[in-house]
Simulated scan of single mutants.
Amino acid sequence: MHPASLVTCWFWLAVSVPTIAQQPTNTATAEPPTCDCCVFDEQRPTHWQTRLAPDTATGQRLQLSGIVYESDGRTPARNVLMYFYHTNAAGRYAKLGTEPRSSHAWWHGYCRGWLKTDEQGRYQINTILPGAYPNERIPAHIHFWVKAPSQRSCYYLSDFVFAHDPRLTESYWSKVEEQEGFLRTEGIRLTKRGSTLVGERTIRLLPQYDREGRQSGLRVGDACPAFDPYHVWGADRGKRTCPMCAYGQGQGVMIWTRSIDSDTLRRLVQFWEQAVARPSVKLARVFVIYTNPAQAPAGQVQRQLEDFAQRNNLHHVAVLYVPSPVHRGSAFLYNINPAVSTTLLFYQRRAVVHNVVDPVATVAELAQQLSWLRP
């Protein structure tokens, strides 16, 4: 179940009045499902199109479609199972009244359904435009989960939201980034086709869930979001300065790493320490961002990183860390794959311009990296 909307969803599920059957709701005995991925055991879809809201449902008809890509952002993802659910036009998860209290059907309402992407990675849902929760500031949305053959487990992705919704505020998107770990979008733009609103959304599977760790990090062209790591070494030592907020308008390198003991990382930091010192390299910042895979306590991590910085005689390269490799507001937000040792993200004016997964840091490779920066 979608964690960011969980409490609010449960509240409206508890007070929603079924539109087909009127039954009293005893919220004290209602327990949500404990197995999210079990929702894919309910049905075995075979088609890339599905209908969520029944034909009898009141509301504006809506059709959403697009292509699902593998984590490389290029390969169409076929045979991906997708599950969707949303409120009715009144903003409530309306039920038939016969659903078991511990079932997904009771908690998600009857506007829900499954599909399986085709050979081209296509999907299409036909439903009604969901209503926003009454008296809430959360935009109208459609929740969805994916389960791909190329990945380890099912997981949820950022809700379908709509560009026309006035609730798509800066505050909303900040919470999406910080709490859910998803990049902000403009929402789906809807146009009228006959009596139906239509829209499109392209979906990229997250590299964090790949069975084989070959992809990691934001794609070229993605905007680098704000995050608040702990600065152990560098100009912001002892602070939680957002690197992109403070320095993102220039250019630089983020070296995301799960190990500070590798020879590759040592060669990387020594190379960039010397490169940044050159007057010809107008580089705003180089950040080593340790993902703390053991989730060690702050004091221990700080001592380890201080020792790392001192051993490598760092003066220009900053050393930071985040709570864990799956922390929603940092490593997860940047699509850092926990199975990958090192991910390099080169940025200019807060946009990713190059992505390097598990570099070997040879002389030739490092020279190529330097060429990616503007003189």
Rank of each mutant, 00 (worst) to 15 (best):
W10S: 12
L13W: 04
A28R: 10
T34H: 12
F40R: 15
T46S: 14
L52F: 04
A53D: 02
A53V: 02
T56K: 13
T58G: 12
Q60C: 06
S71A: 15
D72K: 02
R74L: 14
P76I: 08
N79A: 15
A90Q: 10
G91I: 01
G91V: 02
R92Y: 13
A94N: 09
G97M: 04
R101H: 08
H104A: 15
H108Q: 13
K116Q: 15
D118R: 06
Y123A: 03
Y123W: 10
N126K: 08
I128S: 03
I128M: 01
G131C: 06
A132T: 09
A132Y: 06
A132C: 06
N135C: 09
R137A: 15
I138F: 05
H141P: 04
F144G: 01
A148P: 06
A148F: 14
Y155A: 08
L157N: 08
D159P: 08
D165H: 03
E170C: 00
W173A: 10
W173E: 08
S174C: 05
T191G: 00
G194I: 01
P207R: 03
D210P: 10
D210F: 09
D222M: 05
D228K: 09
P229F: 01
W233S: 15
W233K: 11
A235Y: 05
R237Y: 03
M244P: 01
G248E: 03
Q249L: 09
I260W: 00
I260S: 06
D261S: 11
S262H: 03
V269D: 07
Q270V: 02
A275T: 13
V276D: 12
R278P: 05
P279D: 10
S280E: 15
R285Q: 11
V288L: 04
T291I: 00
T291P: 00
T291K: 03
P293H: 09
A298R: 13
Q302F: 00
L305C: 07
D307W: 07
L314F: 02
P325K: 03
V326N: 13
I336N: 03
A339N: 10
T342C: 07
T343D: 07
Q348P: 00
R349F: 07
V363W: 07
E365N: 14
L366I: 07
Q368I: 08
